[in-house]
Nucleic acid binder design. Structure first.
Lengths: 354, 354
DNA sequence: CATCCGTCTGTAAACGTTTACCGCGTGGAG
DNA sequence: CTCCACGCGGTAAACGTTTACAGACGGATG
């Protein structure tokens, strides 16, 4: 790992100046003979351009950061999956930041923009605090926020619309003839929990159905919580005929309990999840789920950022991604709707010892 | 976004030289008075150190790259989940490369090490070609390969052991009294496919069971392929009492078909998957699966790389991660074994518009 | 009072590029 | 034959740090 060749080494060997070497390597107009000599020297030496020096001079790193709470979370993953190819195609590298759901870490990421190791940032904040807004206003590089940001904040913004999402689900259930639709929600002090609770109430109203507090249960956003909540719900109100769950894990918990109690899905109780993760298609019965368009939001965010990186100044933009209902067996019968991992490789795909 | 302050700005304002500023910022011994002045100036100016310039001089970027075929693949994701925190704790940023299963892209990543935008690389190659070995021998930064690399290659190496994994599964099935155990494999020209096929045959031998070609089916590594293969298998050999599937998706396909045919799982047919992805716990019945330790491999790789980055030269090391059998309902009865996403947040967890 | 030592700080070079500027040589026009 | 224009290529500065080196200063020591 001795020191590699630099343009100086090449210049010496080719008998030209470093300026010429640089020009040749950058494809600037140069005499054929010089080009030949430089190229030959570069090849022989196995020269590779030093990206750091280049970045220092050009003030561009060709790197973009993506910051979210948790790499393991399917929703973020779906975004990442779309963001990555868009950036790659444009010649940008992706730097991943996982903030582990710590707000200070988010602020730290925003702060680190000043270090100029990236040209831009896509961030999915947990919550947008005053500290966020302050840092965003002073940001030293373009930022795209996936989530909601107050009007006037000088960043591009990509939003989901869970209100419409909940409405899609309830309309669907209503159309199937369900009238006693319960909500299994997550904590109300989270942004998604609050939004979904409100949307549920509103959509019921629009459908002419009464809002009944007994039909709403709050737990955490996990499978066991869903199971617990639904068990309680069914004990109290055995007559419910549909469950709207605030995410897919809760819905899986619901399926567990329904199965244990011998309630048929969807005949006796229809179940709808939310987020449309891979788990929804994998479960049995496969789970009808509201997609909030994580993938689309990721893609939109990446495109907005690129635009700003390449195009320069423009007004901050707001993009809202519409939700979509993925109808599967848990509401609409027993048909298997197909997998989702289908992208051409072993779900393992690594080399393998021994 | 005007040009931010540099150490020159600070030096001027504090009335000292840039050398002093640098020393203060790096915590080198300095007179209290100077420290005070510099700190004050830095604070007032909102100074943030330029990471690029720093890297150029120090020849360290504090970035590490992780390259694999596909961000969406659960196995790679499991690695990423472990790699990220290890690097973060050590002060390294993570640059993500997805090669989309194109070998040329892998070579390109190896080549780009010469650009020195990262201090090291963790790579999961699809296949190790001569080109790989050549680039690895000439690599300008430490590399850890997850997969198998010929002895003598000057890189650290982390391996799975699917042979033992298959054996664990077959032992388990055998102990449960199963004797007609079929294999639903992926293509034999893939590394995992070949390894698993051979391991199956060997393990059968050791158990004193005959190897029967009729009991082996080859398809692709997806759910639909699994379903197709198992349908054929059951038509030809209705007497089989266990299915060893080469990954979880295939196993899900198997479950689909068994359910459709009215075969009970596990009473009539026991099913084992491989990779132990989140889908295994989510399916119904939950799926017994062989974990090849993706998470552990990721962690080990990250630790090996850090060691080399911080410690310096040493002999290349080989770490083999033992497989583990996650026993669930598809072989051992109907109990629900609990979810896997349990890490404290909504499986969605984003802000939300409207 | 001269000397020495130690602490602190400033000057300048270096990391590897890109690029503004200038000078040289050639060829064509007058 | 002279002059000019123009195409190339070289010199040097710049990007923002870190750091080797040496100088300045103050206090202690002989």
């Amino acid at each position: 790992m001795a020191d590699g060749p630099t343009i100086n080494t090449i210049a010496e060997r080719a008998g030209v100046s470093i300026a010429s070497v640089s020009r040749v390597l950058n494809g600037l107009p140069t005499r054929q003979e010089t080009v030949r000599k430089v190229m030959a020297a570069a090849d022989e030496l196995g020269y590779v351009r030093n990206a750091v020096a280049r970045s220092l001079k050009s003030r561009r790193t060709h790197q973009v950061a993506f910051a979210m709470a948790d790499v393991g979370n399917p929703a973020y993953l779906a975004m990442l999956r779309e963001i990555q190819p868009v950036l790659k195609a444009a010649g940008y590298r992706l730097v991943l930041h996982s903030t582990d759901a710590v707000v200070e870490d988010e602020i730290a990421v925003l702060h680190s923009l000043g270090e100029r190791y990236v040209d831009g940032l896509i961030m999915v904040p947990l919550r947008v605090t005053d500290a966020h807004l302050q840092m965003l206003a002073a940001a030293r590089a373009p930022v795209v926020i996936i989530g909601s940001v107050p009007e006037g904040t000088p960043v591009d913004n990509v939003r989901a619309d869970s209100r419409t999402g909940v409405r899609l689900a309830l309309d669907h259930l209503h159309a199937l003839g369900r009238r006693r639709i319960a909500l299994v929600n997550g904590p109300l002090d989270t942004v998604p929990g609050a939004a979904r609770g409100a949307a549920y109430r509103e959509a019921l109203g629009d459908l002419g159905l009464p809002y009944d507090e007994d039909l709403v249960r709050i737990g955490d956003f996990y499978r066991a919580d869903g199971a617990r909540a639904v068990a309680g719900l069914l004990a109290a109100r055995p007559d419910i005929d549909a469950l709207m769950c605030a995410n897919d894990l809760i819905a899986l918990g619901a399926l567990d309990v329904l199965r244990a109690l011998g309630r048929r899905v969807p005949q006796d109780v229809a179940v709808v999840g939310m987020d449309d993760t891979d788990l929804a298609a994998a479960s049995w019965p496969s789970l009808t789920s509201v997609s909030l368009g994580s993938a689309e939001r990721g893609k939109a965010a990446a495109e907005l950022l690129l635009e700003r990186l390449q195009g320069g100044e423009r007004e901050p933009r707001l993009v809202t991604v519409p939700p979509r209902l993925a109808v599967r067996a848990s509401t609409a019968g027993p048909a298997y709707a197909g997998g989702k991992y289908a992208d051409g490789k072993d779900a393992d795909g690594q080399e393998d010892g021994a």
